[in-house]
């Protein structure tokens, strides 16, 4: 991992040296000229970005790109997707191959400050969790002392687990594999008591088991993995479009505006809704969009809560609770700056 990081840094430093990214064209103009947004996604993480049964990209993070496309073009389908590996993603963004990177990327300080990218928001507050067999009767991660833990090697997961067990003065024996599938298989075959990785991935993997109900995900989250979309540094307008698209998704949920009732809401008396939907005031013009930019997003894509429920929520096979991703009014962390 270190090596790859170093490589990417060198590559980006080299490109900066060549002045490739020094003079940024306005991304919005480029995007309008070509007629679509190029969106960098994963190679298939269920619920976040993955091909569906009709071979279309779908997921919570795909919805973010669709939302930006809706705001710019009034057409959520004006997006083209570039599947990227975790090694390529930052270089692809820096080089201008993609306009938005929405690929389960953890927002960290070094990435935000050092790679020439800017994070627009947090689409999903993830964190590392533990999965155990229900039959073992473990209710809390603090009961895991002495457990055998299946981990993918060379990941931050491994380091986080080591930190957590040391902090709490517990022993564990790591059972390490290089591949995610191997780790899951080993856990399923009973070679270890616990499987640990990001909690969203735990839920997705659990749904693949023969009897998902035999397994439980413990309530403790031991690391912070805020996953969010990012854009190139040096183009504030495009950054604001992305950031406020994210806020509009949240604001709409907070105000109860959904894709189903957005047309009725145009007649609402609530001044906040009027501002959001562009009935009163023009908040789109300063970022190069129309006054009804947020209306378009909600009309075509829906609000954050709708996307969440559709792709990863309790009703889906992934079955994630809102948890940290609930709105601040419901005790979560999702909080939109006011549109006014």
């Amino acid at each position: 991992m270190q090596m790859q990081k170093a490589l990417v840094s060198i590559a980006i430093a080299a490109s900066l040296g060549l002045g490739a990214t020094a003079a940024q064209a306005a991304t919005l103009d480029d995007v309008k000229a070509k007629g679509y947004i190029q969106c960098g996604v994963t190679g298939g993480v269920p619920g976040f970005s993955a091909p569906d049964a009709n071979n279309n990209w779908t997921g919570l993070e795909v919805d973010f790109c669709r939302a930006v496309a809706a705001a710019v073009f009034d057409d959520p389908e004006a997006v083209r997707y570039t599947p990227l590996t975790s090694q390529e993603r930052f270089a692809a963004l820096s080089a201008g191959e993609i306009d938005i990177l929405s690929r389960t990327t953890t927002w960290t300080m070094s990435r935000d400050t050092d790679l020439g990218i800017m994070f627009a928001g947090t689409m999903y507050y993830d964190g590392q969790g533990f999965m155990v067999r229900k039959a073992d009767g473990i209710a809390s991660a603090l009961d895991l002392s002495g457990a055998a833990i299946c981990i993918e090697s060379g990941t931050t997961t491994e380091l986080n687990a080591a930190d957590y067990f040391e902090t709490n003065g517990m022993d564990y024996s790591p059972v390490v594999f290089t591949d995610q599938d191997e780790v899951v298989k080993a856990f399923e075959d009973g070679r270890c008591d616990v499987y640990t990785t990001d909690s969203s991935a735990l839920a997705a993997e659990r749904s693949k088991f023969g009897n998902p109900d035999d397994y439980a995900i413990l309530p403790e989250i031991i690391s912070k993995e805020p996953l969010g979309p990012s854009v190139r540094q040096g183009d504030e307008q495009w950054f604001y479009i992305n950031r406020w698209t994210y806020y509009a998704l949240l604001e709409a949920e907070e105000l109860g505006v959904t894709s189903a009732n957005v047309d009725e809401m145009l007649g609402s008396d609530n001044p906040a809704i009027k501002r959001l939907l562009g009935v009163e005031g023009d908040f789109g013009a300063p970022i190069g969009l129309t006054a009804d930019w947020a209306y378009r997003i909600i009309k075509h894509v829906g609000n954050y809560g709708e996307s969440f429920a559709k792709h990863v929520g309790p009703e889906t096979d992934i079955g994630l609770e809102r948890g940290l991703n609930a709105l601040w009014t419901d005790g979560g962390l999702q909080y939109a700056m006011p549109i006014r």
């Binding site: 190679g43 298939g44 993480v45 269920p46 619920g47 993955a50 091909p51 569906d52 049964a53 599947p83 399923e188 997705a204 749904s207 693949k208 088991f209 023969g210 889906t316 096979d317 992934i318």
Partner: peptide, 13 residues
């Protein structure tokens, strides 16, 4: 094949 193996609609052992 790899991408489809994370297809939740067909997730199975």
């Amino acid at each position: 094949v790899q991408a489809a193996s994370s297809d939740i609609d067909w997730s199975s052992p």
